[in-house]
Amino acid sequence: MTRDRALRSVVLATPLVWAVAFMFVPYLIIFTYSFWLKQYPTFVPAFQFGNYLQLLVDPQYYQVLLRTAKIAILVALSALAIAYPFAYYLVFKVTSARLRLTLYMAVIAPLWVSYLLRAYIWKTILGSEGVINSFLVWIGILDTPTDIFLYNQFSMVVTLTYIFIPFMVMPIYTALEKIPRNLIEASKDLGVGPFGTLFKVIWPLSLPGVFAGMTFAFCLTFGDFVAPFLVGGPDGVMVANVITSQYGAALNWPLGSALAIVMLIIVLGIIELSDRFERSGRINLA
């Protein structure tokens, strides 16, 4: 009895201790840093809001936040634009269960490939020596390779969309699959054609999956620093890169921490918002 209880405590306590020691404590340390003062060559303990103020007034910082948000929104929308029709096709058009599983796995499989590799692939596709350029030169549209495809926000959105599409497909697929087929039949029975049924029945009922997927894509993009590093170029710098440099070369941990806290708040805000949306739109399908 006591041994069972002891065992249970250990089982429950382990993840808790883990989360506290390796998540909450580091967050707390970063939170503390965000109030410290930069003093050449390093920084000293203090309690002041100068770092946060700097983020608000210095265009260099709030613009990077806005740019990151813009890219995150573009990624979420383009991933949705690709993932939704795909998931729709899988759930409603593919009749063979085997083919459906194969296609689904084909989308999910890249998750097992190194993230770095997946980002790097796009360098070889979009680069001046890359697949697209070679092709355009070969068919004669271009005389010389162009560098317009790589090292800009476009290449970032393309790369990140590709990387985060599985996170969009999964929840949408699940949401679509949960829609009872007889609701679709009922819609058609009431004289509403395939498009009307899509907009009036299927889309509203799949919104929880859409919200979940958009949240994934937005939040994951918001914190990403590899894609900007590999395919971003000068105008593709995002928040995470700025934080990296504040902790590195700039040796301004207090400012980096303030930026990290702002980022955390934005992401948590988005998650909370999407959760509320999902809750209010939650529909009793039973």
Binding site: P180, L183, A186, S187, L190, V192, I283, N284, L285
Partner: peptide
């Protein structure tokens, strides 16, 4: 003709009401 071009309507076994 597809169901949406037929002048018939159905009462479904488990009603199939739109939950939203």
């Amino acid at each position: 003709r597809p169901p949406y071009r037929r002048d018939v309507n159905m009462v479904f076994q488990d009603y199939a009401l739109f939950p939203h």
